[in-house]
Design a binder for these strands. Structure first.
Lengths: 138, 138
DNA sequence: CTTGAGATTAAACTTAACTCAAAGGTTAAA
DNA sequence: TTTAACCTTTGAGTTAAGTTTAATCTCAAG
């Protein structure tokens, strides 16, 4: 199949597919006599795999080190290790996000519950204190 | 104070402070006769505020629209709206991360629980199916 | 007087993951 | 035959948030 059809099948742009090839994600790509790239249908699976891995948070660099030449022969242990490390990364990110969200909710609370009798400047100082003291303690 | 001292006080690099000025985050910056920048001690508070906002997930562009000229006069309603929107963004991101993590754990499970009697290729197909079918359903 | 630290500028470089444009070759259909 | 739809390559542009470099200036101390 030519690149256009592969693009249609996978939902990626042709330029993106060429880009993946250029950074070594696709290995050797066949050519027809006229110079056009030609792909086996397996290529669609590879591209969808790359896509899925990206959505799971892997960079193209990481994906390249994970993808075996032949779809179907992985280094099980290395793969498992990488997957577990990625889960840990995601968990760390989740913790940071939770902290950020909590900090923002605190600030929102400070702004919302401003005592009626306090003036703007004093309230700003109060809010500022909560931001600088509490939001960047990561 | 000169830029070097401000940098030392805030923990930012001088180049970063100049960069913030260049994109309009710091408003007017005073100059001495010799051309050196000169800052009031308030500037440290502004920089720490920027830093805290960044850590909470705001882009410099967003921060610029939030920062008032004078530290202490905010548009309360706009600020509250922005903060709430950012909390919603964070929650969306948290949901995506949770989905990613769950997907990865599924894949890890698939790899780990490979039946002893199945060969590598068949297992790869099985795992591949779970990845392509389950990981990119976001 | 010289040395070293610190200040100035503009412009280029960095990373990631692409996209876009230009200029041209190929092919199927009308 | 001509036109439209594909394909090719190379190289530059994009975004974000800075960093780095180079060339030059200022200033305080010894």
């Amino acid at each position: 199949m030519k690149i256009g059809e592969l693009a249609r099948r996978t939902g990626l742009t042709a330029s993106r597919i060429r880009f993946y090839e250029s950074i070594g994600l696709l290995g050797e790509v066949g050519r027809r006599a006229n110079g056009y790239r030609t792909y086996p249908s397996e290529a669609a699976v590879t591209l969808e795999l790359i896509n899925a891995a990206q959505k799971a948070g892997f960079s193209l660099d990481e994906i390249r080190t994970l993808l075996p030449g032949e779809l179907g022969r992985w280094d099980h242990d290395a793969l498992l290790g990488t997957l577990r490390r990625k889960v840990a990364e995601i968990e760390a990110l989740e913790a940071k996000l939770a902290a950020s969200r909590a900090g923002l909710l605190t600030v929102i609370g400070q702004i919302e519950t401003r005592p009626e009798d306090i003036d703007c400047t004093a309230n700003a100082r109060r809010v500022l204190g909560s931001i600088l003291g509490g939001l960047d303690e990561t």
